[in-house]
Design a protein around this nucleic acid. Sequence first.
DNA 1: ATGTCGCGTGAAACGCGA
Length: 269
Amino acid sequence: MVKIATWNVNSVKARLPNVLAWLKEAAPDVVLFQEIKCIDEGFPRMEFEDLGYNVAVHGQKTYNGVAILSKSPLDDIRRGLPHLEENGVDDHARYIEAVTGFGDLVIRVASIYLPNGNPSGQPPEITEKYAYKLKWMDRLKSHATELLKQEEMIVLGGDYNVIPTELDVYDPDAWRGDALFRLETRDKFRALQNLGLTDAFKALHPVETHCYTFWDYQGGAWQKDNGIRIDHLLLSPQAADRLTGCQIDRKPRGQEKASDHTPIWCELT
DNA sequence: ATGTCGCGTGAAACGCGA
C-alpha cells in the first residue's frame, strides 16, 4: 500500500514546523508540495531527508515552486511542463514529475501548481493572466495525453486552482466569475479528466458536500467553513484500479501558522 | 470591518501574488 499526499504549503520555510509535524503524524510515502516559494538551494532538504524522504525540487525565487518527496528513490525526474509554443518561455516553476516504486507499485507522480488566473476579466473578456492559465491547462492536457500512452500508474496531484463543480464550493454564485470557477476553466478541467483520469476524491466520495481543501485567510473563511475544493489527485486507469482510499485532512488548516490549503491524500493498494 | 499571509526590498512600510 502506498499513501500519496499533496499539499500547497504556502512557503515551505515559513511552514516547516507544521509540515514536519504533519509528515511524522500522517506518514505519507510520497508527498507533492506546491508554493514552496524558494529556490532549489533554499529548500530544507536535510530536514526531510532526516525523516527518510528522497527529495526532488523545482523552485524559484519568491513565487511558485514545486517539490516531490518519496520514501523510495526518485527516478526520471523532469522539471517544467513541456508543450510550449515555438520560442515560448514559461519562467514559472509549476511542474515536476518523477517515478518512484514500492514493490510492484511503480508510480509516476507529478506535483502541479496550476496558475490562479485572477483577475480573469468580465466574461467573455479574458485577461492576460487568465489566458496564461487556460494555455497552461492546454499544455497539461497535451502532456497528460502523452503520459497516458505509457499505460503506467500515474498520479497527477497538486493545486489545480480549479473548482470542478458546484458541489465543491460553499457559495457557487459568489465564485461564478472567478478564474477558479469560470466555465472556461471547468470545461478544460473536464476535458483533462475525459482523457481517462480519475478524480480520486470524487471517485470515493461522489455525493459528499462541504469537502474543501482551501479556506482563504480573510474574512474568517476557515471558521465559517467557507472553503473550496481545488487540490486534486488525478489517476491514470492503472492507478485508479488500485485506489483504496482518499481523504482530506483538515487538521493542519486549524493549527497556528497554517497554510491556507490543507493536505489531501490517496492510497493505492 | 478593505478585518490575511508571505516574500522581497531595504531598513519601515509597501507592492505583489494569492
